[in-house]
Nucleic acid binder design. Structure first.
Length: 345
DNA sequence: AATACGTGGGG
DNA sequence: TCCCCAAGTAT
């Protein structure tokens, strides 16, 4: 019974590594070019709970706009949030900026897991990924892909998240001292392309031989997971008001909580039976369409109310944005949906 | 420890 | 249609 070998996976990775904008191309790597820690870090933050396909364009946009960590550190908060709009998990954008400013202050990125994990937005996964990929520290990297691969490799049936310590032990055991960063990316690539959640392609897997789940025919049912709770549906009202000068009334949402720090329309609270909370005492018209949106832990149905006012009266906590300066792309997706409905009304 | 936190794509 | 899930972190 052969034991899984990191070299077998690295050999596969050297041939099959997917090209990504944050990876050093093989030719340059061979010439000794080291990855840019800023780009590695940026990619890892964006890749948290987000697919490579979605991240690619955002990464290119961000690094073009802010080529270095010092550039990003000097950016306006609202500018960064607008660039992040649509990518989700907006606390990442707020922490991205905090982290950039901390690193800029330090003068350079810390190079070790222990130092990196102290920075905002960097947890166990990201600290391990950056220290290994950018700085060759052999930190075991465990994300959802690695968990799945380990659960199958060792045929572990303990459900997640209880299985994490056990899976981490296997991850650490398999992580090589040399090329730990490449190895981590190799396991993640394997999980994304071959050892997939559904229909794993065991027939072309470089770890076909040692994989216990493959031997036992249990690969497709692993990893086990504890059942999740049902999603409630909440209701709310969004208010889109035009000034007769062409301006729109918007708000920057509070730092904490859902869509924190993002631009959005004034809304009621979101609950079973929302109480009307229009931002202005004018004649509102209910649009004959609703916004449906699914968040991580609840569904949302928003009614959309529209109105027109004369001039641009001051409204506490809200601000008017001139039409020429208004960019729907700066809104989180749910707010973009509201705009799509309101503009047609 | 358990919950909050987005979004888009695939089966 | 609906459910799953994707390179997790903060509290």
């Amino acid at each position: 019974m052969t034991h899984p070998n990191s070299d077998d996976l690295l050999q596969w990775y050297d041939i099959n590594a997917r090209e990504m904008p944050w990876r050093t191309p093989p030719a340059e790597k061979q010439a000794g070019v080291k990855p840019d820690p800023y780009r590695v870090w940026m990619s890892e933050i964006m890749l948290q709970q987000t697919t490579v396909a979605t991240v690619r364009d955002y990464f290119i946009k961000f690094t073009k706009r802010w080529p270095t960590v010092d550039d990003l550190a000097a950016a306006e908060d609202a500018d960064v949030m607008a660039y992040w709009a649509g990518l989700g998990y907006y606390a990442r954008a707020r922490n991205l900026l905090k982290c950039a400013r901390a690193v800029s202050q330090l003068g350079a990125f810390p190079q070790t897991y222990d130092e990196l994990i102290k920075l905002p937005g960097i947890g166990p996964y990201t600290a391990a990924a950056v220290s290994s990929i950018a700085f060759d520290e052999p930190s075991p990297v465990m994300d959802g892909n690695v968990e799945r691969v380990m659960a199958r490799l060792f045929d572990i049936h303990t459900p997640l998240p209880a299985a994490k310590p056990e899976l981490y032990a296997k991850t650490a055991e398999l992580t090589p001292r040399a090329r730990a960063g490449d190895y981590a990316q190799a396991v993640m690539d394997l999980g994304a392309t071959i050892c997939t959640p559904k229909n794993p392609a065991c027939g072309i897997c470089p770890w076909w031989t040692p994989c216990l789940a493959r031997q036992n025919g249990t690969a497709a049912e692993l990893p086990k997971k504890t059942p999740k709770k049902p999603k409630p549906t909440r209701h709310g009202i969004a208010y889109v008001v035009h000034s007769d000068t062409g301006a729109l009334l918007l708000e920057t949402r509070p730092e904490k909580g859902l869509l924190g720090g993002m631009l959005g329309w004034p809304t009621s609270d979101w609950c079973d039976e929302p109480s009307a909370a229009p931002p202005l005492d004018v004649k509102w018209t209910k649009v004959n369409a609703q916004t449906l949106h699914t968040f991580t832990h609840f569904n949302l149905r928003l009614d959309v109310m529209v109105a027109t006012v004369e001039g641009v009266p001051m409204v506490s906590g809200r601000h008017w944005v001139e039409k020429h300066a208004f960019q729907p792309s700066a809104l989180p997706t749910v707010m973009r949906k509201v705009w799509d409905i309101a503009r047609k009304a």
